[in-house]
Simulated scan of single mutants.
Amino acid sequence: MARSSLAQNTCNWITALLTLWSMVSLIVIVVWATWPPLASLTQCRAAHQALIEKMEGVKVIKEKEQDVLKSALQLSFENQTRLQEELESILESQRETNATLTESLQLQMILKENVTALENERLIHHSEHERLFSELAQQEALIENLWVNLTSEAHHLDSCAALRDAADSQQVAAESQRKACETKTNYLVKQVENCKVNGRGTEDFQNN
């Protein structure tokens, strides 16, 4: 709007200057024609014809300048319209870019929060892993100790079994010896009883 006003003012100034120049030229021609030493009919006609031609030329020039100014004004309007459309397109693109940037920033914040949560979770899992690894090491040490104790107890059990087998063998031998001793004792008892019986018979024979 400011450019169109400036172009219109320029056109008005040029028109005013051309009009002023035409009037001054006309006055000069009139003065020159009415000057007594130079006044003549031929000169007046020539001056009149020249004035007419000059006025026609001024008119043509004025029309051409007005056409040029109108073309320039139209071109200015078209450029202004095109620039306005480009500006609106740039503003729209900037708004879309700002919206995209806002979404990207929000997404970045969400991703940052997720990364922080995952890092905290990783630390928790790492701590839990360390705890379980420590417990596993303790369990393995306990299992190793129990295995050593189990091996020792197994050896002790084998030793006890061997001692029991030996004791069983000694018990069997002792039982055999006991039975042999009982058999021998029974035999000796019988011998003693036989001897007693025989001794009584001898005494009876002697008494008779």
Rank of each mutant, 00 (worst) to 15 (best):
T10F: 06
S176F: 05
K62D: 11
N120D: 03
E92Y: 12
V192D: 01
E182V: 14
L142A: 11
E85F: 03
E130T: 03
D67G: 09
Y187A: 05
L41W: 10
E63F: 00
Q191E: 13
R131I: 15
L87T: 03
S127P: 00
L18F: 07
L6P: 00
E153H: 08
T42Y: 07
A167I: 06
S25W: 06
M109R: 05
Q80A: 15
L142S: 13
V31M: 12
T42H: 05
A141T: 08
H156P: 00
E63K: 03
A161C: 03
A72C: 05
M55Y: 11
W147M: 04
V189I: 10
N186W: 06
W13A: 14
T10V: 11
K70T: 15
L163I: 07
L26T: 11
E193D: 12
A137F: 02
S159H: 10
H125I: 12
Q74I: 07
L17G: 06
Q49K: 08
Q84W: 04
G201V: 13
E193Q: 13
I90Y: 09
L105D: 13
T15I: 09
A174R: 08
T97I: 03
I143A: 08
K184N: 11
Y187W: 00
E193N: 04
C160M: 14
S71I: 07
E92N: 14
E86M: 07
E193L: 11
S127R: 10
V31K: 07
Q84T: 13
Q106L: 08
R95L: 14
I143C: 05
E96W: 08
W21A: 15
P37H: 14
I27L: 15
I124F: 02
K59R: 09
E119F: 01
A162Q: 13
S5C: 05
Q191H: 08
R45M: 09
V30C: 10
L107Y: 01
Q43G: 14
K54I: 06
T10S: 13
A180M: 03
Y187E: 10
G199Q: 14
R3P: 11
C181M: 12
V197G: 12
K184A: 14
E53V: 12
L150Y: 03
Q43N: 13
G201R: 14
I61E: 04
E193A: 07
Q49I: 03
K184E: 15
Q74G: 05
S76Y: 02
N208W: 04
I143Q: 06
Q206C: 12
A141L: 14
F77K: 11
Q66G: 05
E140S: 14
L123P: 01
T19D: 03
A46S: 10
W21N: 13
K190E: 12
L26S: 15
K64R: 06
N194W: 04
Q84H: 06
W13D: 09
L107E: 06
E113P: 02
Q43C: 02
L26V: 09
M1E: 05
V28N: 11
Y187V: 10
D168H: 09
E56A: 11
K62L: 12
T183D: 15
E128D: 07
D158A: 06
H126V: 15
V148M: 02
I14L: 15
I143H: 07
E193P: 00
W147G: 11
V68C: 04
T81G: 08
R164D: 01
T42F: 02
L87P: 00
L146N: 14
V28Q: 08
H156R: 12
T202P: 01
P37F: 14
S169I: 01
